[in-house]
Amino acid sequence: MAEAVLKSKKRSSSGIFNTKWEPLIYLAPFLIGVIIFTLYPFFNIILISFKEGYRQMTGAFQSFGFDNYVHIFTDPYFINALKNTAMYVGFVVPISTALSLFFANLLNQKIKGIGIFQTAFFLPMVTSVTAIGLVWKLMFNDRIGVINAMLGLFGVERIEWLLDPAMNIWALIIYGIWNMMPFTIIILLSGLQNIDPLYYTAAKVDGASSRKQFFRITVPLLAPTIGLTCIINMISASKVFGELFPLFSGRPGTAYNLFTMVYYIYYEFNVARHLGYAAAASIILFIIVFVFTMIQLYVQRRWRYY
């Protein structure tokens, strides 16, 4: 009897099943995908970034070293891309976060028809960044655009948003701020809705003004959520590309003055066909994003007091 049980157990454990490898079979479809499309390219791109004169088809290269990195850091277009990206992140993330906080707070009120407003604010999330970019391109038009028309009402002279190289980045930043808000508002709104309304009742009994309530209760209690959106938005703003492409018909600004990190990678890879430079720039972008994230996580951890 015992022998029979033992035997049947043995039979069922034949092959790969019932061994420590079994879970791998079930994980395989996902793992294979990750390995082919994420892990392999990630490590390959590190390798390519060290190969000078790398050719995609043959895999041939001239030398192995830091030549690609030396090149991009002496390339004025890359330096320009770094500057533009930093400026973009530096303006878009704080301004869109502040505006989102303001609007999220408004959208959190209990008033009639709030659903309509909420939908209106979230709508940009489901639209295509390129399609909306084309609309913004039209709005930024210096002759027929609605933005100049409105500014004109306040006596502002015609601004050549998309023609004057000095104004290009501001057009991109304004569009970027608008584009980032819906997502930020959703996250902040969900954070706001998690705050116990009793804190506000308590503050009201003590006579706290709505300003005081906002800065002494809402903002501190929302700080972890604000930190989270900042990290996510900094990462996504560092990778600005989809906003840039439609505004200037695929060019990086009027006079190739508005390279961003990702546009530089795209340009070196797709247009100039310098795979090594593109790879090196990618690694630099990765390091920047990584460092930012680490700093933010550290700050956020020190911020969280409950």
Binding site: D196, L198, Y199, T201, A202, A203, V205, D206, G207, A208, S209, K212, R216, I217, P220, L221, A223, Y305, Y306
Partner: peptide
Amino acid sequence: GLVFQNYALYPHMTVLENICFPLEI
């Protein structure tokens, strides 16, 4: 002065800051 059933102490403030808050206002 109102004391709530679940106290409604501000979680981000210390005990001292919590007690001070009405006077801060």
